[in-house]
Design a protein around this nucleic acid. Structure first.
Lengths: 164, 164
DNA sequence: TATTGTTATACTCTATAACTATA
DNA sequence: TATAGTTATAGAGTATAACAATA
């Protein structure tokens, strides 16, 4: 499975969004020493990489996360999906609306509690999720392209120690 | 110099914004394996930590970055400041307006080119920047509180390898 | 009364484009 | 013509609050 050329060397085209802290012309002072600032720069790169890999402005990383969550947890309530991604009820509604409009998810009435729905992928949604997963994996691999596998594993371990 | 109590144990109060990927109830699927997703979660934590440490909704991490940049590079043009932070001209204007309204920065006419200004800190701005730097450093230290110093250094090295 | 979902609304941040004044 | 800065405007994404239906 070849990685498309525009994903293989991806970061260089996105660097205009991200300051080079070592450039002589500008002194970044404290920013250059802040872990949080480095995290932000890498987040910007990862976001841009993912957007480009997906190639559809409507499908943001956040919306992909929603679709992935639905695929892995069929039947969840909207409020549970929202909580799992740190979204308000209304933001979850809108995110699910987006995928419903694209024919990827279905709201099924919950017979036990008629206030709520169970959210499920449609067949088309399954296919779309499979397609996107491949792109997302490639973009994520590209993000750590400058690192060895051992370094990538260590990076993930350290990030996980912070947020887990 | 003691770290305030609400910064010393900071992450726990912010976790509601950040899913625990290992929780049994929900399967995060691909998301749990994505470096980019972990980066995002850590970014959310760092952002929240910094906002809380600063304790002034107007002063965002982005605006702090602008002030720090002005402090470290007095006399830069607005457009240069914007470029250094990945901002458009209009966004840079607004960010500098914010600090000017607070009496922290000054636009000084450039005698050689009357279209542009040199941006400088005021005395009050110097003091404000010094005050904020201490808070920012504490918040950044708190972000990596779960890591040893060696681990924090390694995390920074790995992040730098990606964005530098 | 409390909860699920929807809708209306407002807010923040951003970029683009039009505009002014210089160059 | 091009550039620095400002302003007007629009877009995306979010949250809060009011609302309807149901518990």
């Amino acid at each position: 499975m070849d990685i498309p050329a525009d994903i293989r060397t991806p970061l260089d085209d996105l660097r205009h969004r991200v300051p080079k802290l070592t450039e002589a012309a500008i002194d970044y002072g404290l920013l250059a020493q802040r872990t949080g600032f480095s995290v932000k720069l890498v987040w910007i790169l990862g976001y841009g990489l993912l957007m480009r890999a997906i190639g559809d402005d409507g499908i943001t990383p956040q919306r992909f996360s929603m679709l992935e969550l639905i695929g892995c947890n069929p039947g969840l309530q909207q409020i549970q999906l929202g909580n799992a991604l740190g979204l308000s009820r209304s933001a979850a509604t809108l995110s699910i609306d987006f995928w419903e409009d694209r024919g990827c998810v279905q709201r099924r009435a919950d017979k036990a509690d008629r206030r709520s729905f169970g959210i499920y992928l449609t067949e088309h949604g399954e296919a779309e999720l499979a397609r996107l997963r491949a792109l997302v994996l490639e973009a994520d691999t590209a993000l750590t392209g400058a690192l060895t596998e051992a370094e990538t594993a260590e990076l993930r371990r350290l990030l996980g120690k912070i947020h887990l």
